[in-house]
Design a protein around this nucleic acid. Structure first.
Length: 106
DNA sequence: GGAATGACGATAA
DNA sequence: ATTATCGCCATTC
């Protein structure tokens, strides 16, 4: 076991919890915001511990909903006012990024 | 130690 | 738009 692993998990969950309603963040964004790890690492955390946070506000880089939970996530996001474009979320409109951190998009 | 796997991402065809 | 392939990173077998 590794204490640092729990630390990373906690950081991911904390960041996901502060995503505003109707907004979404990508796995890669979260990894970039935390400064280490990777998209797969974040996805693993969500898969295991995402049940305690608004996991539906986390999507793939293209606005794709989490596989196996598309129905659920889509329903929730629509309810929160997220902008959809077919089966995906418009990251340009509903994408969110912590203002206190540098934006990877430039 | 090596192969397989996964709620990913980017690129090529 | 869709499929295929590779890279990434930690976990699991």
């Amino acid at each position: 076991m590794d204490g640092a692993a729990d630390d990373f998990t906690e950081a991911v969950l904390d960041l996901v919890e502060r995503i505003p309603p109707g907004r979404v963040m990508a796995y890669g964004w979260i990894a970039a915001a935390l400064g280490h790890g990777g998209p797969r690492r974040v996805a693993r955390v969500m898969s295991a511990y995402g049940g305690g946070v608004p996991w539906w506000r986390v999507t793939t880089g293209g606005g794709r909903l989490p596989p196996g939970h598309e129905e659920e996530a889509r329903r929730r996001l629509l309810s929160e006012g997220a902008v959809f474009r077919g089966p995906r979320v418009l990251m340009a409109a509903s994408g969110w990024y912590p203002e206190e951190l540098p934006d990877p998009r430039g």
